[in-house]
């Protein structure tokens, strides 16, 4: 099994974020990294300060969208970028922590702002190899 990782997938107007991990929570963490990577190279972002997020939704897919939208909200209102994530999933709730630092346009060279996570190509599932995949298209 591959180690946890993230990737982007194609959407004609925008971009898809996909996290892959050994658990659903790890896939959510990787999807969040993929979200940061839409904006900037996550390796440029120092995990200096933490933000806590709580989400609640009736199924894992809606929970993924809530998690990503929660991060988008924190990025926009606190002017932060994140590069490390921890997710705890219990039933309909998600408790997450995101570590990052204030946006520095010169150092982070942000490409684009993310408007929101969408329900397009939204999926949270376990593959035949046991890995979890969490993905959706984000509107930029």
């Amino acid at each position: 099994m591959d180690q946890a990782h993230w990737e982007h997938f194609q959407h004609q107007a925008d971009v898809g974020v996909r996290g892959i991990g050994t658990s659903m929570a790890e896939a959510f963490e990787q999807a969040a990294l993929a979200l940061t990577a839409v904006v900037t190279d996550p390796r440029r972002v120092q995990p200096r300060q933490a933000v806590e997020l709580d989400c609640r939704a009736p199924d894992p897919e809606l929970l993924l969208v809530d998690w990503l939208n929660g991060l988008i909200y924190e990025m926009a209102t606190r002017r932060l970028l994140f590069s490390r994530f921890r997710v705890d999933l219990r039933g309909e709730t998600l408790q997450g922590t995101a570590w990052g630092e204030p946006l520095d346009p010169r150092r982070h060279r942000p490409a684009v702002e993310v408007k929101g996570a969408t329900y397009t190509e939204l999926a949270v599932r376990q593959r035949d190899d046991g890995c979890w995949v969490a993905q959706c298209v984000v509107d930029v």
Binding site: A57, V65, D66, N69, I72, Y73, A76, G116, A117, Y119
Partner: peptide
């Protein structure tokens, strides 16, 4: 800007539910 994005995000979820 952010206001429209957030309105869209929140009502999308409420309408799905």
């Amino acid at each position: 800007r952010g206001l429209g994005h957030q309105i869209g995000t929140e009502f999308l979820k409420r309408m799905v539910l």
